[in-house]
Amino acid sequence: MKSFTYERVGTVAEAIDATKRTPHARFIAGGTNLLDLMKLEIETPRHLIDVSRLSLDRIEPSTDGGIRIGAMVRNADLAADARVRRDYGVLARALLSGASGQLRNKATTAGNLLQRTRCPYFYDTYQACNKRVPGSGCSALSGVSRQHAIVGGSQSCIATQPSDMAVAMRILDASIETVRSDGTTRKIPIADFYRLPGATPHVETNLERNELITAVSLPAPVGGLHVYYKVRDRASYAFALVSVAAIVNPDGRGKVALGGVAPMPWRVEAAEEHMVRGAAPVTARVLEGAVTTEQNAFKFSLVERTLAGILSEARGSTK
C-alpha cells in the first residue's frame, strides 16, 4: 500500500475545508472497498479524510412523508430499521442479500453507492483495464465475461456495478444529497447519478471532485409487494449474476430494476407498462439493444425467468 497522510473530521464543513487543503485526498468511511483497492494499489490516495464519525448516522422522517438516510448509516442498520423493513422492503431485502454480516456492519450508505466493480480484470493489475488505467484496453471483451454487462457497456468496458442497495434505491426513486467543494448543496436523482462507461469508464458517477454525499432520501412509501431476487453462484455472500428488484401492485402494475447486467442499476421506465402482460415483454424492453458474449448470453433468459418468478409470486400473494 502507498503511504498516505490521514485526518479525521468532525463536521461536514471541516470535511470540505480539508479537501481545499489537500485536493487529491479521498474520503474514507467504512473503508471496506477503498482499503481493499489501496492494498492492491488500484487506489493510491495521498491523503485520507476520515468522515466515518460525522453525525450523518441517523434515519429521519422527511417532510414529504419519506425518509432521509444519513450517508454514514451502516448497511446493517439500514436493513434492520423498522421503517425500512415495513415501507421499503425491497431496500431491506437488497441490503441483506449483499456481502456478509461483518461487511454490512462496516459499509456505509454513501460508500455502498460508490463501491467499484468486481470485474476480475479491474482487480488484476497485470491485465488491461480502461477503468483502472484509462486507454490501456479492456481484457474482459475477449476474456472470461460470464459475470459481465449485457446492456449499457461499451467497446471500452463491460464491467458491472456491484451494489444491490443501489438497484433497490433506483426502483424507489432515491435522491442523493451532497455538498460540493464550494459549500453549495444539491440533490441528485439516482437516475442521474451513475454514468455509462462510453469512452471514459473510469468516471462512474456525476459527482464532482471532492463532492461529499451527506444523505440519501427516499420519497413517501408506494406500497405494493416488494421483492429482491438475486441469482448467484452460491447461496450467500456472492455478487449477483442477475438480480431483479420489483414492486408489484395488486393490479399487476409496478416497477422493475436490474442488477448484475449493466454498469449501473438498470431501469427502463417505459418497460414497466408491460408488467401486466408478463415477464417476456418487460424483459425484451428493459434489455433492448443488449450486446452479449457467448459466455454471458444466459443473463437475458435468466432475467426473464427471475422476473417471471416474481410476477408469479405476486399473483399468488393477491389471491
Binding site: Y6, R8, T32, L35, D36, L48, L103, N105
Partner: peptide
C-alpha cells in the same frame, strides 16, 4: 481482503473484518 472472515473481531460490540479497517480509524 475481506473474503474469508478469519480476522473477525468485535468492535464496539459489532463483528467486523479487522483486515479491511485501518487501525487509526
Amino acid at each position: 481482503q475481506g473474503q474469508c472472515g478469519a480476522c473477525t473481531v468485535l468492535v464496539n460490540g459489532r463483528r467486523i473484518n479487522s483486515c479491511l479497517s485501518l487501525a487509526i480509524m
